[in-house]
């Protein structure tokens, strides 16, 4: 039962990858693409936690912690660049 639910969750994460990629390709301005990068990072965090369950190793959660804590620094650099105060 739990495995079925997690499989559905993984499919939803994959769907979000597809949708955000379409947004990245269409997005008229740079800001849309930066937001797409951020959403992709957050979806990847979810995917890695699900993988830690499926592959049966707890230590993979460490990777998602690093993702979660570093994902916004790159976005901050790009935002500072876009507001011309880097």
């Amino acid at each position: 039962m739990a495995n079925t639910l997690f499989t559905i969750a993984m499919l939803i994460v994959g769907l979000s990858f597809l949708l955000v990629t379409v947004r990245f390709l269409l997005g008229p301005s740079v800001v849309d693409r930066v937001v797409a990068l951020d959403v992709l990072t957050i979806s990847s965090i979810g995917l890695i936690v699900l993988l830690a369950h499926f592959l049966d190793r707890v230590i993979y959660v460490d990777v998602s912690i690093v993702y979660a804590i570093l994902s916004f620094i790159g976005v901050i650099v790009i935002a500072k660049y876009l507001e011309r105060s880097l």
Binding site: I69, L70, I73, I76, V77, K80, S85, L86
Partner: peptide, 14 residues
């Protein structure tokens, strides 16, 4: 990761 902290420091006290 320490270097990323340094980037955050540079961003906040530009």
């Amino acid at each position: 990761i320490l270097a990323s902290t340094f980037i955050l420091l540079l961003m906040s006290i530009s």
